[in-house]
Design a protein around this nucleic acid. Structure first.
Lengths: 105, 105
DNA sequence: AGTTAATGCAACCCTGTAGTTGCAGTAACT
DNA sequence: AGTTACTGCAACTACAGGGTTGCATTAACT
């Protein structure tokens, strides 16, 4: 497991507008146009954000009639969370070890 | 719990160089100058990155003699992981509910 | 006290990207 | 078939931020 695939996910999550989109999608699948009706940005801007989110594996798209609907993928988020947890735990373990050494054990 | 404090953390994690810094710090506390010796960027660039990481609560600084040493905070990472996990789980729950409706229950 | 080695600050370049407007394409619905 | 409503593509603006160089400052160490 490399971190190379993690970075794009975080980069995607590090934007307020994209979070708004994710939260909106969290309430139900929606197209770029539909999202543009709820958020204070253009449909084209939203389309770009959706492309970034899809590239990061955080959403998937599905054609429904003439519209392209997007669905949020919670599993990817959970997967990322598990990885983060492991890394954080490891760093904390090291810190504890350092403290024990500092205390002269 | 709002997501407003989450975004800076992800923005901080969404950069390869900052990950290199975090990984390096994961092996032991270090100053900006020391890090500059190991990574292919300037000390000043690293200093900026460290400021971002500190702002996001991912590292803390401690003076040791005339140098300013940085330490990675795994706990913040774990905290973020827990939040992510919850959100991801909630979205997945909704998806499952939708599928059950689609199956006509 | 003088030297050395660290940090702090400022100005600058340049690329990436969030956002826009405008128009072309395309597939439903009547 | 014609209209409507959605997506796709392209060009452009503007600003944030990752990176650099250069210099000032400050605090250990001898």
């Amino acid at each position: 497991m490399t971190t190379s695939t993690l970075v794009p996910v975080f980069a995607a999550l590090g934007d307020e507008t994209r979070w708004s989109i994710l939260v909106a999608l969290g309430e139900g699948d929606a197209s770029a146009s539909a999202l543009a009706g709820r958020l204070p940005v253009t449909r084209q801007a939203i389309a770009k954000h959706l492309a970034v989110l899809q590239e990061a594996g955080l959403v998937e798209s599905l054609r429904v009639g003439r519209e392209l609907r997007y669905r949020v993928l919670g599993s990817q988020l959970s997967e990322t969370a598990r990885r983060l947890e492991r890394i954080g735990a490891e760093w904390d373990r090291r810190l504890v070890a350092i403290k024990r050494i500092a205390e002269g054990l």
